[in-house]
């Protein structure tokens, strides 16, 4: 179980997160939606202390980290319990696909090389890249790179995988293959927190939706409620705008055809 308690973060004198509370149960997929600049990325980065919160606690299982007192060792332990998938993939450029996936297993988890290789191959197969195991990231399409990013995270067998807009850097025709992989591992019961703009995907994959705006959780709940009957004005407005954008996109497409 992942718990965030009163997470606050400011950059300079701008308070970007105004005390976020969130509980994610084991095996749940939680999607965070919200307008640009609402603090979604920052929240995700606070969970593994890539950004150190000014206030609050992160609890993963029984392991509790206080933002203020956290020392290096605690932060490392926390990071070993989590994994992240980045918008820009951030694969280790000088390592092949399989080396990317093995790196954490060997260096961080100290697994023997052969065990690591076997495990890495299994995960790579899961994301459908067996043929590319020895390719370098630069030789892969964006979609393939992101699938490696997912494999790298998945291989570590973390308590939670944090995904920050995993498809927003991709060409539209590559989005699907990545979403499909995420869906598949969600179905396996991996706990995930996903920041995404793909509303229909969020609807489909999530057990729980969190809507953020201006550093606060405005509304949260199960997808059917949030999408069909949002209570808050800001949530309604957000979905209205998104729907309009999608309609525009579609009519543009139809016009183009």
């Amino acid at each position: 179980m992942i718990q965030l308690r009163n997470i606050q973060k400011s950059f300079g004198n701008q308070l970007v997160l105004k005390g976020i509370d969130l509980t994610v149960n084991k095996g749940e997929v939680v999607s965070i939606l919200g307008p640009s600049g609402s603090g979604k990325t920052t929240l995700l980065r606070c969970i593994n202390f890539l950004e150190r919160p000014n206030e609050g606690q992160v609890i993963v299982d029984d392991f509790k980290v206080n933002s203020k007192q956290a020392n290096k060792k605690e932060i490392l332990t926390l990071r070993k319990k989590t994994a992240m998938v980045f918008q820009q993939y951030n694969l280790f450029k000088h390592k092949t696909v399989i080396e990317n996936v093995m790196e954490g297993l060997i260096i961080v988890q100290k697994q023997p090389k052969e065990t690591a290789r076997k495990l890495a191959m299994e995960v790579i197969e899961k994301v459908g890249l067996t043929e590319k195991a020895n390719a370098y990231p630069v030789q892969l399409s964006g979609g393939q790179q992101q699938r490696v990013g997912i494999a790298r995270a998945l291989a570590l067998n973390p308590e939670v995988i944090l995904l920050d807009e995993p498809t927003s850097a991709l060409d539209p025709e590559l989005v699907f293959e990545v979403l499909e992989v995420i869906k598949r591992i969600a179905d396996e019961g991996i706990t995930m927190i996903i920041v995404t703009h793909e509303v229909s995907f969020a609807k489909d994959v999530s057990d729980y939706i969190v809507f953020m705006d201006q550093g606060e959780v405005v509304e949260e709940g199960i997808p059917t409620v949030i999408f069909n009957n949002p209570k808050e004005e800001r949530t309604k407005r957000f979905f209205k705008r998104i729907n309009r954008e999608e309609d525009n996109l579609e009519s543009n497409l139809t016009n183009a055809i």
Partner: peptide, 20 residues
């Protein structure tokens, strides 16, 4: 992003520097 990826998989500073 390379540093962040290294940290995100649980590397310490030295491992990040030397390996990545």
């Amino acid at each position: 992003g390379q540093t962040e990826a290294a940290y995100s998989i649980g590397m310490n500073e030295k491992q990040m520097m030397v390996r990545i």
